[in-house]
């Protein structure tokens, strides 16, 4: 599987966010997208999963399921956690697992992996920001998708949780997945490709 972008241009509200961005990521590879605030890291991820329309350029997925769009084969971990405070930790994850087409048993396993098993019955409203983030990450494990698109995945995570996420990303890469991550800092993964946005600005 290989995901390539050719001369992507992103426009939002009549303003050009970035232009002529190209990259190519193969199975087992990680692309770290860096750049200052407002350079369009989040926008690039949202373009890839189809939440923003492409102004110019092309996205090509080779070796994926031709029946499905790129977004339908990807996990997107945005800034927001997509959790409902009134629902319990279990209910939140079970919903996303069910909606994304996974099995309930996988949800139970995933909640164990992110270390929230003991809190399963609590409303998500009671969780700290880091715990909410981990619950949201659990969805990536519960349902298998070959592509992960992560927007500042380390945000609000403490050191231990960051290490655990790094391990999860490594495992995903080792299974032949591919990862695009917008990040400020290091992800602690050796041999990652870098894409720096915002160079073309004057």
């Amino acid at each position: 599987m290989r995901l390539s972008a050719v001369n992507l241009t992103c426009q939002r509200g009549g303003r050009e966010v970035f232009a002529d961005v190209s990259f190519s990521v193969a199975a087992g590879e990680l692309l770290a997208i860096t750049g200052r605030n407002g350079a369009g890291k989040s926008s690039l991820l949202r373009i890839v999963v189809g939440l923003i329309r492409i102004a110019q350029g092309r996205l090509i997925l080779e070796g994926g399921n031709p029946e499905l769009s790129i977004g339908e084969q990807a996990h997107y971990l945005g800034h927001q956690d997509a959790l409902k405070p009134a629902l319990s930790v279990d209910e939140n994850l079970r919903f996303w697992t069910g909606f994304l087409g996974g099995k309930g048993a996988d949800a139970a396993q995933a909640i164990e992996t992110v270390g929230l098993r003991d809190l399963g019955d609590l409303p998500a409203a009671y969780l700290s920001a880091g715990q909410r983030r981990r619950l949201s990450i659990a969805r990536l494990i519960a349902v298998k998708r070959p592509m992960w698109l992560l927007d500042e995945p380390m945000n609000t995570l403490d050191a231990a949780a960051q290490d655990r996420l790094t391990a999860l990303i490594r495992a995903h890469l080792a299974e032949g997945g591919l990862v695009l991550a917008a990040t400020h800092g290091s992800l602690g993964i050796a041999g990652m490709q870098q894409l720096h946005l915002g160079e073309q600005d004057r």
């Binding site: 270390g115 929230l116 003991d118 809190l119 609590l122 409303p123 009671y126 969780l127 700290s128 715990q131 231990a160």
Partner: peptide, 10 residues
Amino acid sequence: LRLMRARTAS
């Protein structure tokens, strides 16, 4: 108690 359980969990 439930709030405290969430607080004290890692």
